[in-house]
């Protein structure tokens, strides 16, 4: 199993690497296109501001490479959002893998959403063995709107897509690497895809 975490300068990569280490898998951190293409599984992480992160992807040409990947890819948090068509954060054009847009939460709720919330209507092998209403840790100010690719739903002021899937591309808004045992199970499921 060759697992690569795309290292383009955005996010808490160490935590993801450690989470896989707890599952017995040594992940490689890389921004090298050859190494990424040769991987069995790929994690596309991201924390921070969308336009800054997108510029970092463009600098290394990864914005072109990522949508062409054929193996299972898991976008986490901002990684998932960048796989969408666009995001209101910094009015950024996304990679367009997921057929939906990313909007900012309204000020009727506290922004960012920070903490544990439930995921429902689970529809993917990624959630094998995960209970409806399982708690996941989320930290975000922007959310993906529902589309036909929604595979998990969460309520925070509105009901939004907390996970998406299109072919070999998976995206989760929550942080499985910080979501206790249920999160670890999702990472384990991803390794089995």
């Amino acid at each position: 199993m060759k697992l690569v975490i795309i290292n383009y300068g955005a996010g808490n990569i160490k935590s993801i690497q450690f989470a896989f280490k707890r599952l017995g898998v040594d992940a490689i951190l890389s921004n090298n296109p050859d190494e990424i293409v040769a991987a069995d599984k790929i994690i596309f992480p991201g924390v921070g501001e969308a336009s800054t992160a997108m510029n970092m992807l463009k600098e290394s040409g990864l914005d072109i490479l990522i949508p062409t990947l054929k193996q299972p890819v898991l976008g986490i948090c901002l990684g998932m959002q960048l796989l969408c068509k666009s995001t209101e954060e910094g009015y950024t054009k996304g990679l367009g893998v997921f057929n939906t847009d990313v909007k900012r939460f309204s000020n009727d709720v506290k922004v960012p959403q920070m903490g544990w919330n439930v995921i429902k209507d689970l529809k993917s092998d990624l959630f094998e063995g995960i209970k409806e209403g399982a708690y996941m840790y989320l930290v975000h100010s922007y959310y993906a709107e529902h589309c036909e690719q929604t595979i998990a739903k969460t309520d925070y002021g509105i009901n939004y897509a907390s996970a998406l899937q299109h072919n070999n591309f998976y995206g989760v808004q929550f942080h499985p690497e910080k979501s206790s045992l249920a999160g670890e199970k999702i990472l384990e499921n991803f390794l089995k895809l």
Binding site: N12, K14, S15, F18, A19, K21, R22, Y137, V139, H175, E177, K178, S179, S180, L181, G183, E184
Partner: peptide, 29 residues
């Protein structure tokens, strides 16, 4: 960060960007 699967915050005597960068790179959320 290696052993704990929930988020954590680190505080105390932090006053520079470099210090924050170091802590986040070590796995602080």
């Amino acid at each position: 960060a290696e052993q704990v699967n929930i988020p954590f915050t680190v505080g105390g005597g932090i006053s520079s960007i470099e210090h924050v960068d170091d802590l986040l790179k070590c796995g602080a959320d």
